[in-house]
Amino acid sequence: METIAVEYGLVLAGTLFALGLISVLVRRNVIFMLISVEIMLNAAGLAFIVAGARWGQADGQVMFIFIVTMAAAEVSVGLALILQIYHQLKTLDSDAADKMKG
């Protein structure tokens, strides 16, 4: 069976993670920020898969399933929060939610 070098997989995961991070930082729309977080989570999951394949262990896949589960939970909570923010502020701009300013 032909294998792809680990490096490629990790570079892909890193790129995805960086893209996600950048868009979290750049985007002001909360929904897009949530999506970006999802991308970052999946990037981390991909890294786990790659690592698991490299060492030939099941741990990587276990962790991926764990991350997917967690992401689902996170999205549900996150969406609920977004709904609330929209209700309160009538906008999805994250910068508008700066009530905790010191």
Binding site: L25, R28, S94, D95, A97, M100, G102
Partner: peptide, 18 residues
């Protein structure tokens, strides 16, 4: 002075964490 770093802008916090 340090209270000023708490801007309330979520993206600043993420930046900080990163």
């Amino acid at each position: 002075t340090f209270a000023r770093t708490q801007t309330g802008v979520l993206r600043w916090y993420i930046m900080g964490i990163t």
